[in-house]
Design a protein around this nucleic acid. Structure first.
Lengths: 344, 344
DNA sequence: AATCGAGATTAAACCGGTTTACTATTACGG
DNA sequence: CCGTAATAGTAAACCGGTTTAATCTCGATT
């Protein structure tokens, strides 16, 4: 690859002039400008991204940070990313997927600052070391999901109204006559799990459901796939407590496990078991009979808003902490129905 | 942020020594090493990514290049990306999603080399300027999909056997008794469209189907969503040629349009119209009744193989051109059936 | 004719690392 | 006790851009 030096020599001007021709940050006479561009084309020259970033102290790259080992993108993340990408696209930013193993990053020879101007961080946890690290390292961040309270006034974030949404969904099931619910929740250390628990409990309390009839099981944070967790937990719960008539699953993948459990127990959905999932789109949907009732989280919009807020923070000097709540909508399909009286 | 200079001063050694402590590329006595690391921690120092990349001439970042304006990731891309990410993860590479508008990149002030060590390029087209550019710019690439023939011996790529797969699928429909097929193909300029056309034609010819009964419509490359294209094309085709009893759709999104058209025409699937789609996973699957018959493309494996080949090319000096063909499997669900004789 | 000022260009410093060529110190074998 | 080699550290050059401060040109103003 040829360098700016080569172009400068070839067109008989200085490095600085060539730089200005490209960056357009200073006026250059048309004549010189053309001569330089011709030479550049001739030599197949393109400014070096990293040299430029080093000098500019800006990379025009946004990071997307996802926690956990062996992470896989779900449908939710996909939509979210599409939202982020759209904004990046319009503003000339590139998107870096930043999810290297903590074990890798902890080695001294891999210590390094992040190659991004700012980062969108997914799935915040209660004691999330990533947040501390970014604040400490001066990297602007926007979270998708609520941070733990100690950071709530320190970092910007976008989120659904998880408390309200779960309340609404729980009420829906209660109004259908269900009196004994099982809630398969996200891993306990994720902040979203707490919010959803809150909403669930609140709606149950409001309807006078005793605590024993509000089963919540948090997904353990080991690498067991969600559908297996859904299957095993539902099997166990329904055997121990056959009065359960409705299950709320945190994701559609979990719901798949619930469906399978119901099938193995000879129960039909929705007649003997209602199933609700926090997800409107699913990879596994071909497997769902009947179609899954869920909720639209508007992942794409979450991504868009996060990206917009982040870019805003990058452009302005004043670091206002912002928050955006994206509304949700229930999507009633056919996996939930009135509790049948003979089930009593 | 503190620099290597600060750390050097604080620990009373030279820049070069600090550099060696971090990169471990040269032995440093334990004593000095500890002193430096302590100072680094104290100052919250991390090596600057850009400066390091500049000096190393390597970024440890792989690019994922997707063509087209206003691109959105589909389920296929999601799985593919998961495959790529897994490999990146294990090798300490980050992944950059590189899909900026050509209009943006053509402006002089945005000319810049790519900030990656190598790139995985999706959806190659017949006269794909991206390929030329990367070869010219010395950026190692691996394609997902077959390049046009002039590049076939010049760049590595991974692909499904699109010809064979389409042949197999077409035969399947022909064996079900269908004699009049509609094939909604990918945009004509994509190489995959040609391959699939070839397979389709070949199977039809083999069965003695006249050309007039092998309708192929290529998706125009304007920004109309695939489902609308599927809907409108199917409506038109079925009205002009009611003898059609089976449709092959290039993607599940297109198939969604076909379903809708069938509904509007009062036709039931699969009894009056069989539908086959080149996709096993779908965002829209909740909408599919009956479940869509398709084909498993193993997108994740495609991504994995592409990443592995790319990393191999980066590590070795010898640039062997490699090719990998990932097998496909038909997934028979319930959107295709025997042609009913009364339809004759 | 002298002064001023705007515009275009350049040399050199800088961004923050890595690497090379060299020096100083210690260890060892003969 | 000396020559040689191995080890640890350093100063300076380098990676390829951007930017600052200074210089030079030329037309307009007084």
């Amino acid at each position: 690859m040829s360098t700016i030096e080569d172009v400068a020599k070839a067109s008989g001007v200085s490095k600085g002039t060539v730089s200005s021709v490209f960056s357009k940050k200073r006026p250059i006479s048309k004549e010189v400008s053309e001569r330089v561009l011709a030479a550049a084309k001739e030599l197949n020259y393109k400014p070096n991204y990293w040299a430029r970033s080093l000098a500019n102290k800006s990379t025009k790259i946004l990071g997307l940070n996802i926690p956990g080992e062996q992470f896989k993108f779900s449908q939710f993340h996909l939509s979210l990313m599409n939202g982020v990408l759209g904004v990046c696209y319009r503003h000339g930013y590139r998107l870096l997927v930043n999810s290297l193993p903590p074990s890798y990053l902890s080695q001294v020879e891999h210590w390094v600052s992040d190659p991004v101007d700012g980062e969108i961080m997914l799935d915040p946890e209660n004691e999330d070391p990533r947040i501390m690290e970014r604040i400490h390292g001066q990297v602007p961040i926007v979270l998708v999901g609520r941070p733990s309270s100690q950071y709530e006034s320190k970092v910007s974030y976008v989120d659904n109204d998880n408390v309200g949404m779960t309340e609404q969904i729980t009420r829906y099931l209660l109004e259908l006559g269900h009196r004994n619910l099982l809630f398969l929740n996200a891993p306990k250390h994720r902040t979203v799990a707490g919010d959803r628990e809150l909403g669930f409990r609140s709606a149950c309390r409001e309807a006078g459901i005793p605590e024993t009839h509000q089963q919540i099981v948090f997904k353990p944070d080991i690498y067991r796939p969600s559908n297996e967790f859904g299957y095993e937990t539902t099997m166990k719960a329904l055997q121990e407590m056959p009065e359960i008539t409705a299950v709320i699953a945190d994701t559609d993948t979990m719901a798949l496990g619930v469906y399978k459990a119901a099938e193995h127990l000879g129960m039909t959905i929705p007649d003997q078991l209602s199933v609700y999932a926090f997800s409107d789109d699913s990879t596994y949907s071909p497997e769902f009979t009947p179609p899954l009732t869920g909720v639209r989280l508007h992942a794409e919009q979450l991504g868009r808003e996060a990206a917009v807020i982040l870019l805003e923070q990058l452009s302005k000097e004043t670091k206002t902490v912002k928050r955006a709540i994206v509304p949700t909508e229930m999507v009633i399909r056919s996996s939930c129905t009135q509790r049948k009286t003979f089930m009593k």
